[in-house]
Amino acid sequence: MTGRTVSSAGPAVPRSPLAGPVRRAAADIFSWRFALLLFAGAVVVYPLLWVVSLAFSGQQSLQLVQLPGDATAWQQLAALIPLPQQWSLENFRAVLTEQPFLRWLLNSLVVSLGTTLVGLALACSAAYAFSRFSFPGRDRGLVLFLISQMFPAVLMLIPLYVIVVQWLGLGNSWLGLVLVYAITALPFCVWMLKGYFDTLPYEIEESALLEGASRFTIFYRIILPLARPAIAVTGLFSFMTAWNEFILASIFMDDEALYTVPVGLRFFVSDYASEWGYFAAGAILVSLPVILLFLSLQRFLVAGLSSGAVKG
């Protein structure tokens, strides 16, 4: 992608092979878009810096900000940037060794990937039907999906416990969690995918139908590949739903070896004393897989229709 943009900007100054990219970069840096992104990036990063500096401080609570009274405004501003007094990996070491953190991380990965798979399978097929067929009860069905998001989750706790643990006997098993999370994420996924499927031109399917392809082939071979950006977004969403959930995971699981990582993180917080340093270090570790996942999904977010199969 970068290559293409570079070559399109290139021909103006053909003297040196570097001139094009440099000019391009300079033009980017002085554009309003870049300024906006820089500003937004700063706003986003600042609170996270506190988390990072707490995690690397080796301590359990942050240094308090106290402005030096007789310093210049510039020094005072510098004092607002959170940096630990000394850098240390102690918090990370403690988080990783004092509890089976990696094991929990692995559990979370299994549960979250399971949720993503189950959720996407259910959502794609349902959304396809909602988008492409007209049948009695279609609108009502869509609204039914929405209702589930409208009831406060805290009050679903007991009935969910009854259903999952007592009726289905899925207490203390990942399958129970996967099912609950997948269904929780379902409404968003269905709505999102349906919206996206609606934007895909119907002509492709019509011609495929005329050529004798079945609905399932069309769905599987044509629609799903075209909908990659939306599938990436909903997949990420399903993953996150399972990845950060704490209360159901800790109520359903009766075995420490089966806990997911958000449950493990909450061990550091209690009513009396909380180890925020450990929590921060753990939070950073927990967010790494998400970042990796996002990085790997990125290309689906940028390569949609414009470079997809439609034109071919």
């Binding site: 986003v44 990063v45 993180l265 998400v290 996002f294 990125q298």
Partner: peptide, 27 residues
Amino acid sequence: ALDKPILGRTWFRLLLILPWAIPNYIT
């Protein structure tokens, strides 16, 4: 702002989703 190519687009995109990635309990 991120839709069209710009210097450091991948990084900005990554940076801007960070608040979603880190457990919101601590943030």
